[in-house]
């Protein structure tokens, strides 16, 4: 983990609780993310997902602990870490295209105006926006289109790490499905490392290489790291047929429904490092092992 592309080491966040004491959101959280990995983090509200995201983005400082990227501790926001915010955060006085060129021009200051524009248009096309729509202001676009612009802005900057803070939270289910696939399309073929917060289990399984599970706060911890053993490319209609899909899904539902509460609020020794336990569920290989007892049970 210490050699990971991105390593989060002993991250602790405490806030004053307003009564003179302190409120610990999470403590000594440690995990790593490899280059090119797509990692989702799942957990209930209040477990500190957004706080972790803000620390990774450099928008807020942890009480303790460090975040290292490529071996160097990060501090403050940087163009190396792009962010897609839940509420799109497009600048409403700029057109969709200008919102993207705004980022690209900041990222590549020596490019000519034409280069910046061509690059931006190319990325807008990748998320399915072209023609007249890119010259409209965000207020004239639907929620789905706005989030597409926001995703295009983040990918066009080619950051080393892309942070997505519940990017589809405000969209209806149908739009969400389309944009998830577009996100996968833009992501595949790049070695873009992505860290994404979500509330949606199916979304996480569709998108992620690995899902980090957080227990409930306060004193939340990243308890498990679940590998998604479903081969890519994934289509939302196909993955549900895969033998691992429901096994993984059940595991996640169990965790969020029961174990996240059971494991919550455990006070730990000061030096204890809370690394997630790796969980690998692969029905395609353990078939024999797991299904035998079941068959026997039926026989007896």
């Amino acid at each position: 983990m210490a050699n990971s592309f991105l390593s989060i080491e002993k991250l602790t966040q405490r806030y004053p609780d307003g009564k003179g004491g302190e409120f610990t959101v999470f403590e000594n959280a440690s995990f790593g993310i490899e280059k090119g990995e797509f990692v989702c983090i799942l957990g209930h509200s209040g477990c500190g997902k957004s706080t972790i995201m803000n620390i990774l983005a450099g928008l807020s400082e942890p009480t303790q602990g460090v975040v290292k990227m490529d071996g160097f501790a990060v501090s403050g926001p940087s163009l190396d870490r792009g962010v897609v915010f839940q509420n799109y955060s497009l600048l409403p006085w700029l057109t969709a295209l200008k919102n993207v060129t705004f980022g690209v021009a900041a990222r590549f200051p020596d490019w000519t105006k034409q280069q910046v524009e061509d690059h931006s248009i190319a990325f807008l096309e990748k998320v399915g926006l072209s023609g007249d729509a890119i010259h409209r202001k965000p207020s004239q676009l639907s929620g789905g289109m706005r989030q597409r612009v926001s995703i295009a802005r983040a990918f066009a900057n080619e950051p080393k790490l892309l942070l997505l803070d519940e990017p589809f939270g405000a969209l209806d289910a149908l739009t969400r499905g389309t944009i998830q696939e577009e996100l996968l399309k833009v992501w595949s073929g790049t070695d873009q490392t992505v860290f994404m917060i979500t509330h949606d289990i199916d979304e996480a399984i569709l998108l992620a290489d690995r899902i980090l599970l957080m227990t409930n706060g306060p004193l939340a911890r990243v308890a498990e790291s679940v590998e998604i053993t479903i081969p890519r490319p994934r289509m939302r209609t196909d993955i549900v047929e895969h033998p691992n899909y429901y096994a993984i899904r059940n595991h996640l539902v169990q965790f969020l429904g029961k174990r996240s509460a059971e494991l919550a609020g455990q006070v730990s020794a000061p030096d204890e490092i809370h690394s997630p336990e790796t969980v690998r569920i692969d029905k395609t290989q353990d078939d024999a092992v797991e299904e035998q007892p079941l068959l026997q049970a039926v026989k007896t």
Partner: peptide, 27 residues
């Protein structure tokens, strides 16, 4: 704050932020 955060994550300096984000937002 989101718009200011956009400026921050794009590493805009104080003057650039004032002119490209704060001024149009407050105009």
């Amino acid at each position: 704050e989101d718009w200011v955060n956009v400026a921050r994550t794009h590493e805009l300096g104080a003057f650039k932020t004032a002119f490209t984000v704060v001024l149009p937002a407050a105009a």
